[in-house]
Amino acid sequence: MSENPDKTKARETLELALGEQIHALISASHALNVRSAERFDATMQPAAFHLVRWLYSYGPTSAAALAEATAMDRSSVSRLIKQLEKAGYVSKEPDPEDRRGVLLSLTELGQQSTVGALKEKESTFYERISRWNDEELERFTTMLRRFNGFNG
């Protein structure tokens, strides 16, 4: 039994429309990330803020784990961490579980600067959902969690 061509075309149209909206979200998020990075420290590359943002969200880690988690090569992470450390945003401490290892973490200045940079991004997204009622927000969050693979 073959599928209805009209139904197939309608589904393709819906999938293309979804793709357009996902692309718009990714593009808007990237633009906000670049602006947030500039607000964090205009002298740093946006990739440095990507590392800082990861440390802010997940806490201390090794340079190797940070490179893997952010899909960046180790040499780039090492170079950026040196810049962040020199600027006072990141510190290195001995790993309590492996004395030969080093953990990277945000300093107080790094934490404060990250929070300041993220406020702009949060306010932009908040503005977009501010007129949604609770049911719409809950439905959007549920659907986004499912799309991102976080449903059980």
Rank of each mutant, 00 (worst) to 15 (best):
residue 44 M to V: 09
residue 12 E to L: 11
residue 43 T to P: 06
residue 19 G to W: 05
residue 65 A to M: 12
residue 80 L to A: 09
residue 61 T to E: 05
residue 30 H to P: 00
residue 82 K to G: 10
residue 68 E to V: 06
residue 36 S to D: 04
residue 59 G to V: 02
residue 20 E to C: 11
residue 24 A to Y: 11
residue 79 R to N: 14
residue 81 I to D: 07
residue 32 L to T: 08
residue 23 H to W: 15
residue 46 P to Y: 07
residue 27 S to I: 06
residue 77 V to Q: 02
residue 79 R to M: 13
residue 39 R to E: 10
residue 12 E to H: 03
residue 60 P to F: 08
residue 76 S to V: 12
residue 20 E to S: 12
residue 48 A to C: 11
residue 60 P to M: 11
residue 61 T to W: 00
residue 12 E to Q: 12
residue 33 N to Y: 02
residue 70 T to D: 03
residue 33 N to K: 06
residue 56 Y to N: 10
residue 62 S to N: 05
residue 7 K to F: 11
residue 15 E to S: 12
residue 24 A to W: 09
residue 12 E to C: 00
residue 36 S to Y: 02
residue 72 M to R: 14
residue 48 A to T: 02
residue 40 F to W: 03
residue 8 T to W: 01
residue 58 Y to A: 11
residue 19 G to Y: 06
residue 64 A to H: 10
residue 33 N to G: 08
residue 48 A to I: 03
residue 39 R to W: 05
residue 5 P to W: 05
residue 77 V to P: 00
residue 66 L to V: 08
residue 63 A to S: 15
residue 59 G to P: 02
residue 42 A to Q: 12
residue 10 A to Q: 08
residue 45 Q to W: 10
residue 9 K to F: 01
residue 43 T to G: 08
residue 6 D to P: 03
residue 14 L to Q: 05
residue 77 V to L: 02
residue 4 N to E: 06
residue 15 E to A: 12
residue 4 N to A: 01
residue 22 I to M: 15
residue 41 D to S: 04
residue 74 R to L: 12
residue 6 D to G: 09
residue 80 L to T: 03
residue 7 K to S: 11
residue 84 L to V: 06
residue 6 D to Y: 08
residue 11 R to F: 02
residue 78 S to Q: 12
residue 59 G to C: 00
residue 32 L to H: 05
residue 31 A to G: 05
residue 12 E to P: 06
residue 76 S to H: 11
residue 84 L to Y: 04
residue 40 F to E: 00
residue 26 I to F: 13
residue 9 K to I: 03
residue 57 S to L: 15
residue 39 R to S: 08
residue 58 Y to H: 15
residue 52 V to P: 01
residue 11 R to Y: 02
residue 11 R to I: 07
residue 57 S to A: 15
residue 31 A to N: 11
residue 82 K to T: 15
residue 5 P to G: 04
residue 30 H to W: 13
residue 70 T to K: 01
residue 84 L to D: 07
residue 46 P to W: 01
residue 41 D to N: 10
residue 60 P to W: 06
residue 68 E to C: 01
residue 10 A to C: 04
